[in-house]
Amino acid sequence: MSGERERRELLINVIAGLLDGIRHVAVGASSPIPAAGAMLLRARNERAGKPPVRISILGSQEHNFFTNGAVEVFDCAAQGRVDAFFLGGGQIDGAGNINLVGTGTYPATDVRWPGSFGSAYLYHLVPRVILFREEHSPRVFVPKVDFVSAAATTPEVRRRGGPHALLTNMALFDFDRISGGFALRSVHPGYSPADIRANTGFDYVEPASIPATPAPDAETLALLRGRIMEELGETYPAFARAMQQAA
């Protein structure tokens, strides 16, 4: 039994659920858990005879069906052909804004992160953006980000894209685009709603009764530990190996 493997399997299962109904999901480089979630959905749809799911893994030669260079995924999103994408953030605030640039005062930030990548654009254009950040702490989930790499809601312009949910090591939140804030949907096994409150630096809606995030069922686990780890190993060999060793 390994807590680490179970933790990851739960996240993968949640992601597959969040993606349900999509036709094309793009996954950023070095995102094995989102990629595994997308692969799980693809396998489930195949079994259920549902429409196939396309997965683009950016920076992967194998899982990349684009032929028009770096611009194609962005053009594809502008055309409405990318249904879901994942974004993280060094900081994420209660309004759903994300910061991939750094903390402190720009430009000579105290801590510098890599940069905004495609976030400022894709957040506007991809209907179902899943915010995925494993570390659940007040330093990540802040009242207000120090730098807005990408804004979650912008009433001044029409947009089809924005945050759909926020998934962490401790909980799952929904995002309400009208109110512009998060609501706690479920808490992962081992944590209480009070733990979430204590580790979240921003305010959010908390319904009276919060269910536990469901763990994957036996059929899902069999799929995950078999076919999905095999598929994932083609792009993320180290991650797939670690999952198998943790078994």
Binding site: A78, Y106, A120, Y121, L125, F147, V148, S149, A150, T154
Partner: peptide, 11 residues
């Protein structure tokens, strides 16, 4: 497309 709302526009 996009970008509106980002602090990139400020800097």
């Amino acid at each position: 497309a996009g970008i509106v709302g980002s602090d990139l526009l400020r800097v």
